[in-house]
């Protein structure tokens, strides 16, 4: 039941993340895969640059997963892998995988983890456009 949490500057191995949550006690594995999109608010995006405050990001990620275990006591295994550095279009930026006995809780727990990650985990995203770059969500 120890969650697999990591922040890496290497391409994310999706199969490894799914394998990390495999358990005979689970009948459902649910995953979210976040990828780099070619536009943001209608503005073409060339690539993304992710920066992480690793020690705090892992601490906060641990809190998020602990909250998920509190909310869904049947939750079995969890894996969260987030990429940092420069990512090209189509690259995988984040994988969340959860294993639960039944499917309903797997959808709910997976969504909770990715939604809460986006609110509290100390990772920043800089979008690169044809004519410059911008830190996402920095300004009102």
């Amino acid at each position: 039941m120890t969650p697999t949490l990591s922040i890496t500057d290497q391409p994310i191995d999706i199969a490894a993340a799914l394998a990390a949550v495999q358990t005979d006690a689970a009948g459902a594995v649910n995953s979210f895969i976040g990828t780099v999109r070619n536009q943001s608010g209608g503005r073409p995006v060339r690539r993304l640059h992710y920066e992480s405050y690793d020690s705090m990001a892992l601490t906060q990620l641990g809190h998020v997963v602990a909250q998920a275990y509190d909310k869904w006591p049947m939750l079995q295994e969890v894996a969260v892998v987030h990429r940092k550095g420069t990512l090209e279009l189509g690259d995988v930026a984040v994988v969340v995988a959860v294993a639960t006995p039944h499917r309903a809780e797997s959808f709910a727990a997976c969504q909770f983890i990715i939604d809460t990650l986006k609110q509290v985990v100390t990772i920043w995203k800089r979008e690169e456009y044809e004519d410059g770059t911008e830190w996402v969500a920095a300004h009102p």
């Binding site: 976040g34 705090m56 990650l117 986006k118 509290v120 990772i123």
Partner: peptide, 12 residues
């Protein structure tokens, strides 16, 4: 203390 400024996060 390890102290840091945390601007709006944007992971995921």
């Amino acid at each position: 203390d390890e102290i840091a400024l945390i601007p709006p996060v944007a992971g995921g």
